[in-house]
């Protein structure tokens, strides 16, 4: 998935990167319980392939994977933080240590 932002910055995301960053409660955990992504080491290939992307309001994307998992709403600010380009990766290193896996 490619996003060209308002400031013309371009970000490219692999399905794998997006899947491991899924912000939904099932994947991240809730109320102190660990989420699925902290329990599993591997995900099946169909979990990592994008099926569909839809816009939520003007602030987020809902990303559906081929496995049927579609509960994550990826806010634009999260997506921008996930940008994998060298420039953004370098910024992250200097800020807060490593970004999401």
């Amino acid at each position: 998935m490619d996003v060209v932002w308002e400031d013309a910055h371009r970000s490219t995301y692999s399905g794998e990167r997006l899947r491991w960053a899924c912000p939904c409660a099932e994947c991240r955990g809730e109320a102190g319980a660990p989420g699925r992504l902290s329990r599993v080491k591997n995900l099946a290939p169909e979990e990592l392939r994008l099926q569909d992307v839809s816009l939520i309001g003007q602030y987020a994307l809902q990303i559906a994977f081929q496995s049927g998992h579609a509960t994550g709403l990826y806010t634009f600010s999260l997506l921008r933080r996930l940008c994998a380009c060298e420039e953004c990766a370098a910024d992250r290193k200097s800020d807060l240590g490593p970004g999401p896996p």
């Binding site: 998935m1 996003v3 308002e6 013309a8």
Partner: peptide
């Protein structure tokens, strides 16, 4: 006149 984000899925 704002440049809106453009999203493409390949």
């Amino acid at each position: 006149f704002r440049q809106l984000p453009v999203i493409n899925v390949r």
